[in-house]
Design a protein around this nucleic acid. Structure first.
Length: 476
RNA sequence: CGGGGUGUGGCGCAGCCUGGUUAGCGCACCUGCCUUGGGAGCAGGGGGUCGGAGGUUCAAAUCCUCUCACCCCGACCA
């Protein structure tokens, strides 16, 4: 039905790109690997920012801004960090026509520059905690990029906190992961599994990394957010110490956490269909469109008056699109707004005026309902939140249906290389087993879920004792 | 870095092998008419020197040499 969009069943990856481009969310830029976020895409990012920013502030955080450029020497202070990030950094070597004394890295993440500043700001336990977030762009020189999911430059927020004790840092790390989980589920309508990353998958420089993992419609996993307990690694690298109540000196404990424009990719791949984007109502800046339908002039007069009155009424509470363009026929408009994911469409034609009704169409189910004119405002107010909830439940059911308990290596391999999905399997904790699975199946351990059952078992790979199941899956 | 491929109006392509009128088609765009309950139709119109450089030739989008860019697969990353 939709022109120009490859069906999911034909080529999922192509479908994704088609939706992004056709719905005018993003476009390729002249620079390889970087994209332009167009108004339709940026509107989603603005809402993500709005909601998350409030959630950060409600949990005691404040915003600040640190510079884009980081001295090379800073990047090299934390051993694991430099090893993890140096290969994928862009580096500025010239400025003002001169070669620089010291090269400047375009931030791939801001731990180093921020901790160089925290050193100046933290003297005493009275200066702690520091709970700072920043909204920024970062750059990672990825070899293979995809719109929203992995671009060289991307937008994100990064929280960087400093604490007096290890316990407090761990508490903060988990608290923010939970904020992400709530945000993903209640706003993006994306069910996620929160858990701890294995050693090999954790952030370069972290003690523990936690993540939320979502399942896309092709049953692959997408890491949707991470929260890191950095321990004293960065405090030691940048020599950030404070004096405690007892007068002793000790290193500060750190956390960092972030989500990025990748969430827009997650949103698309979780809910959208072969007709284009499907947005959960909370992520739609404009949740409603009104399409008038008429043939003759006298019909037009009546329909437009009727539609305009409704437009005014609904506009009191919602941002409504009134599509009164003359050059397009209704069918074209339907297709266009479906492509762009507008949650609710109201069609008004002569018959509706006659019967004192309107036609209401939900984007997620495509179901059409005839609604009494008097009731429409109330029905809209009731439908939007219901749609939000049903989208989450539908995604949750899909995730559940494609998650499999497995107790042998062969069974794991069969699922991963066959139908796909999440595999719940025992793992002994040994990185060697993790690597073996990855090499045999391309699946990695997504995380060790917090809410996993207490269950003794045998590692699916080596047979040694395991404390519980972890999630294996192919991932983006 | 290895393998494969592509560069021709905004987008998608044909033409190239076998050089030869004014470089063609679909979509999009503009104007008018006509239409409007699932992406209408007709007529008219604007827009490209064929990625770049050099060469062969009376003549090059087409043949030759060099060069640049991008895409796909792999490796890498997630």
């Amino acid at each position: 039905m939709a022109k120009n969009i490859t069906p999911r069943a034909t080529d999922y990856s192509k479908w994704y790109t088609d939706v992004v481009i056709q719905a005018k969310m993003a476009d390729y830029s002249p620079v390889k690997g970087s994209m332009v976020i167009r108004p339709n895409g940026y509107a989603i990012w603005e809402l993500i920012q709005k909601y998350l920013d409030q959630m950060f502030k409600d949990t005691g955080h404040v915003n600040a801004y640190f510079p884009l450029l980081i001295p090379e020497s800073f990047m090299k202070k934390e051993a694991e960090h430099v090893e993890g990030f140096a290969p994928e950094c862009a580096v500025v070597t010239h400025g003002g026509g001169q070669e620089l004394e010291e090269s400047l890295y375009i931030r791939p993440t801001s731990e180093t520059i921020i901790w160089s500043m925290y050193k100046k700001w933290i003297m005493s336990y009275r200066d702690l905690p520091i709970l700072i977030n920043q909204w920024a762009n970062v750059m990672r020189w990825e070899m293979r990029t995809r719109l929203f999911l992995r671009t060289s430059e991307f937008l994100w927020q990064e929280g960087h906190t400093a604490h007096a004790t290890a316990e407090e840092a761990e508490e903060e790390t988990l608290k923010m992961l939970n904020v992400y989980k709530i945000f993903a589920e209640e706003y993006l309508a994306i069910p996620v599994i929160a858990g701890r990353k294995s050693e090999s998958e954790k952030f370069a420089g972290a003690v523990h990394t936690y993540s939320i993992e979502a399942m896309m419609q092709d049953k692959k996993a997408l890491q949707a957010g991470t929260s890191h307990n950095l321990g004293q690694n960065f405090a030691k690298a940048f020599d950030v110490q404070f004096q405690n109540k007892e007068g002793g000196r000790q290193y500060v404990y750190a956390t960092s956490w972030g989500v990025s424009t990748r969430l827009i990719g997650a949103l698309i791949m979780t809910h959208s269909d072969d007709n284009g984007l499907v947005l959960p109502p909370k992520l739609a800046q404009r949740p409603l469109v009104i399409v008038p339908i008429y043939r003759k002039d006298d019909e037009k007069t009546k329909v437009m008056a009727y539609a305009d009155a409704l437009y005014r009424e609904l506009s009191e509470k919602h941002k409504v699109i009134f599509d009164d363009r003359e050059q397009y026929k209704p069918g074209y408009k339907f297709a266009e707004w479906e492509l762009q994911g507008i949650p609710l469409r109201i069609e008004i034609g002569p018959r509706d005026v006659e019967n004192n009704k309107v036609v209401l169409v939900r984007r997620d189910t495509m179901k059409k309902d005839f609604v009494d004119r008097q009731a429409i405002a109330a029905v809209v107010d009731e439908t939007l939140p219901r749609m939000q909830g049903e989208m989450l439940e539908r995604a949750r059911a899909f995730q559940k249906a494609n998650t499999h308990k497995v107790d042998s290596f062969d069974a794991l391999k069969e699922i991963v290389s066959g139908d796909g999905g999440f595999v719940n399997a025992h793992w002994c904790g040994d990185a060697a087993c993790e690597t073996r699975v990855k090499e045999a199946t391309k699946a990695t351990i997504r995380n060790i879920p917090f809410d996993r059952e207490e269950e003794k078992g045998a590692c699916v790979c080596c047979g040694k004792p395991s404390e519980g199941r972890v999630i294996f899956s192919k991932a983006y």
